[in-house]
Amino acid sequence: MDYFERTAREGRPFAEAFLFDCHGHFGPDAGFFIPGTDLAEYVAVLDRVGIDRIAVSAFANGIPAGNDAVARAVAARPDRLVGYARINANYPEIMEAELARRFDEEGFLGIKIHPYCDQVPPEDPRYEPVFAFAEERGVPVLSHTWQSSRYLDALLAYCVPSRFAEVARRHPGMNLILGHSGGEWDGILEAVEVAKENPNVFLDTASSRLYPGLVEMLVREVGAERVLYGSDAPFLSPVPQVGKVVFASIGEEEKRLVLGGNAARLFGFPEGE
């Protein structure tokens, strides 16, 4: 039993590891009630598990109000929160100013897009300035991805993993994180294919689906260096999301990479800071 499993069984924070959650949010979401989203309560939840840092973006319609809320939270707890600038390609006229403000004035470190909510597929040319910016600055882009054959949802067509292959090829210098690794199993297999073909594609583990063997499969198929722990907090509690990795049948060093090392590298943090 390794350090992570031992610590989890004792219910203690993972104090001897660096945990960096690459897929978080901050602020309200009109779609449902979320308790504990006050900044102090939010950080208290991170503390219980020992999550050192979390990269957060605004929820669905987050420009500019949601980005403002993220900026305030990051400014209040720069030791714990990292900002993603949420970009909506339906508003290309404010994109440039939004990116400049968030990155140059407020210290954001990543970009979040949501082709499902915004109903703009990733290959749409309106994203091009965003991807060019990310490539030039060396900042990661996180996108929501999802695919499911279990239910009908026409909007899924906007965010299926296969649509990101072209974007990743066009921007080989951009680190692209496929959020939720494609969601359900059919989407996950699709996301794995995109990642295998494109070394600049990373897969995050955030999902309410606690599939047995998921993390093991991702690590086996694309390598531990390209799998990132994510939680989708505060949509979801980060605790079971950490648990997916902690109890995966992979090596302790691989767990360290997935739980924090990879995200630290992508966001430009020296290890352990």
């Binding site: 598990v49 509690s237 950490v242 109890f247």
Partner: peptide
Amino acid sequence: HFDPAPSVMAVRY
């Protein structure tokens, strides 16, 4: 359908 271990953690933590 789901791995039981993460659900244990949810209660423990």
